[in-house]
Design a protein around this nucleic acid. Structure first.
Lengths: 369, 369
DNA sequence: CTGAAAGCGCTTACAG
DNA sequence: CTGAAAGCGCTTACAG
């Protein structure tokens, strides 16, 4: 017969009941050693693979967990997907991914609003019967998350926190990270600054920039509105923002970009305009993505451990969905990494202002695993 | 009741049989307009969503198609995943992705061999009951593909061709693309060259480099072995290769890199070493990935329409698996795109050699859609 | 056009 | 420890 074998075939060949075969194969329920061996033999002989659909129907678990990201391209998401897929396969589950961009042939990345696309993408995953879903989006409010948390699939959010379910959120301290960025620039003697922020609607961006400006203000430096631009976290946006900044004249010695993608584009723009980085202008990135080591010059940046964050969030979800007890960790401290794009600035010889960055560090509360 | 509604609930509420409700909901089979309306109402009232698991069990289709890529990160794969996901969602199917890197927590990208990981990843997708699978790998031989094609799920391969099932392969003409690269450099007056190839085991790399060298040879230029390095298509590899090249002295005027990732890393390496691109050295990339516009200087490169390729391959698979008739196209001509990293070389004033690149262009045979 | 019934391939109480 | 039976929620011949 050419038909794919079912568990009934296995049972028959092994000379046992279907129930026993099932228990032997799935490992749920006791079977005698001899029976187990016979069933195993039959499985091997027939090259039997249990049907996931049938299993899903009777157990009400599909073994798949979904992940929603805004976008599959980009240096930020790739490594996260990689990490999640790794964890899942390690746990013998699998990943189904959705993103907020592709919704049919004609849809470009920008039609419809990002929030609705995120909601749709996540619901798609839930309707497809994922046992749990991971979301990394910056278009969702706390209320949106609350709504999502009331649906049937367990959901953990990455790169964002929410007061209502802090234990389901895995994020770095973006505010602290922003302070670290400010501190880095100040410490190098820069006080005339410009910055390119990400999407103004994104919570991580808001926290990051708030921390950045707060730390600056604490040391008496403020950035005039004309020197604050928004670059939507994209290459194009970063490039345009840098261009606009440049058009006003180069009366600042350092530029902070809210992610490495924009920093790379800014450097490209600067290069084209003939301004040397870091000789004439220092630029500091954010994320420490794969790009950062290989821009020209190599990017100094503040690193956030996004891969760890994703891996741990995923393990937490796995524990939640399948009753596992994988180790999960909740601290993902940002840190600045120095490469070649930031040089000492005009105020480098003044006494470095004392910084209280460390104060801002707070231990996160302990949760039941 | 808080139980999720089943089709039986819908049927009861609509006052019809389960079979009728099923026909009305799925659209398979005729139903009278009135019945249809009543069923629709019931569906809406109960917020009914059919169970995919149950459907899969009876129809033997899961509605998911798998895609295997070596790696989720990287500027090449991201846009491909994006395109495939878009096509699939447009067709109301969904994507499950696997990659060759993550196989459990401890596994790094380099343990085990790439071929085995590709085979495992693809089988994983098949066992998970994907209705079809898309593969983009450069670690598989024609024999491997033949073996895979004998398994149950229809499989289409991207970025590679195979003689046994050409209609199931969607690729650009890598050999021609390599010729184009050579032509571009020659035409700009470069005759002393160096190159960084990708993985030597990868078919696309082999074709590309063969075309490159063949075209060069046709015009009397050959690259000494010392000036040919291998960079595994990665940032790190490209950087190391550039470093090795530089260590030998700068006796060449242009460098060809077999992908943009390596080109970006090479530029970074060059920059660190104080050699100016393109003033002292021209560099030509390959792919025209998202990075190419934003390196410093912006990268001249040969573009391969990988997104089109992925989208069309996916549509072909969709047609195959679900009997659809989506339009599919099979020509993905490479072309060189000029930006700022290549400048006229020392032989720019000599008569440009006549190039026969166009000859190499061949129409692909026509297949039944 | 419609309903009743069988079946898809597993798992899981329930008896023994 | 094991078998027989019912059930998971759909779809699809089969009659009518």
């Amino acid at each position: 017969m050419t038909r794919t074998p079912t568990i009934a075939d296995v049972a028959r060949l092994a000379g046992v009941g279907k129930g026993t075969a099932s228990r032997a194969i799935s490992g749920n329920g006791a079977v005698s050693p001899e029976t187990l061996a016979r069933v195993r033999e039959a499985v091997a002989a027939l090259n039997f693979r249990p049907s996931n659909a049938a299993r899903a129907l009777s157990t009400k678990r599909t073994g798949m967990v979904g992940i929603y990201v805004h976008d599959f391209a980009g240096d930020f998401f790739g490594p996260i997907l990689q990490a999640v897929d790794g964890e899942l396969r390690g746990a013998n589950r699998h990943m189904v991914a959705a993103n907020g961009c592709g919704l049919g042939v004609g849809a470009g990345p920008d039609d419809g609003d990002a929030r609705q696309r995120a909601l749709d993408g996540i619901r798609f995953l839930i309707e497809r019967e994922c046992d749990g879903v991971l979301v990394v989006s910056n278009a969702l409010s706390s209320e949106d998350l609350d709504m999502l948390w009331s649906e049937k699939a367990p959901l953990v959010v990455l790169n964002q926190t929410s007061p209502s379910k802090p234990e389901h959120c895995f994020s770095t301290d973006h505010e602290l990270a922003g302070r670290l960025a400010a501190h880095a620039l100040l410490q190098q003697g820069h006080r005339e600054l410009a910055c390119i922020s990400g999407l103004h609607t994104a919570p991580d961006n808001a926290l990051r920039m708030a921390g950045f400006h707060a730390e600056l203000a604490q040391h008496g430096v403020i950035i005039p509105p004309s020197h604050q631009r928004e670059g939507q976290f994209s290459f194009d946006g970063g490039h345009a923002a840098a261009q606009a900044l440049l058009a006003q004249g180069l009366d600042f010695s350092a530029l902070f970009c809210a992610n490495d993608t924009m920093a790379m584009a800014a450097i490209a723009c600067l290069g084209k305009a003939g301004v040397k980085v870091p000789d004439q202008l220092s630029v500091l990135g954010f994320d420490d993505s794969v790009l950062a080591r290989y821009t020209t010059p190599a990017l100094s940046t503040v690193r956030v451990p996004s891969v760890d964050m994703a891996a741990n969030g995923c393990r937490f979800l796995l524990n939640l969905c399948y009753g596992l007890t994988l180790p999960v960790q909740r601290e993902f401290p940002p840190e600045v990494v120095w490469r070649d794009s930031v040089r000492p600035g005009p105020h480098a010889n003044e006494s470095t202002p004392a910084v209280q960055v460390k104060m801002a560090r707070k231990r996160s509360p302990t949760f039941k695993a």
